[in-house]
């Protein structure tokens, strides 16, 4: 069972890095600004999933999957806390990802607005023709 877990986890990690490569290609090589922004969102989402995956801890056993980092009892005893610390996934990466998502939202919104404005002013979103500043 643990071999299967490791295998699946490795597939996840591999596909994340493959995703990073694809999105970097999209940002740097596609000519359309809209496609670049789509690639950028893929890129930041990949980074976020990577952060979540770092907080993951290997399953203690197949019958005992890790729990979300939420304490459900109002007045936990020491035993509860020990069990919680042993079972729960790491909450910090989730906090980081929450922050990064909010920031990414603002940046993406701003970039989309700028692209709209570029389209209004230049009549195109092709970066090969949006090149008035040079030299």
């Amino acid at each position: 069972m643990s071999e299967l877990n490791t295998f699946l986890f490795n597939i996840l990690l591999f596909s994340l890095f493959f995703n990073v490569g694809i999105s970097l290609y999209g940002i740097f090589a596609r000519p359309s600004l809209i496609k670049k922004i789509i690639a950028l969102t893929i890129f930041s989402d990949t980074a976020n999933v990577l952060a979540i995956a770092v907080g993951y801890r290997g399953w203690p056993s197949p019958s005992q999957p890790p729990i979300p980092p939420v304490i459900t009892t109002t007045e936990p005893s020491i035993d509860d806390l020990t069990w919680f610390a042993r079972q729960a996934v790491d909450p910090l990466p989730q906090a980081l990802v929450l922050t990064a998502i909010v920031i990414g939202l603002a940046v993406t919104l701003f970039l989309v607005f700028l692209t709209l404005q570029v389209y209004r002013l230049y009549g195109t979103t092709d970066v090969r023709r949006v090149a008035r500043l040079r030299g």
């Binding site: 970097l24 940002i27 090589a29 970066v127 090969r128 090149a131 008035r132 030299g135």
Partner: peptide
């Protein structure tokens, strides 16, 4: 420097950055 490197096209900068 002027016509090939700083030509203002985003994708050509990407080559150097990448």
């Amino acid at each position: 420097l002027r016509d090939q490197m700083h030509n203002g096209i985003l994708n050509d900068w990407g080559v150097y950055m990448l």
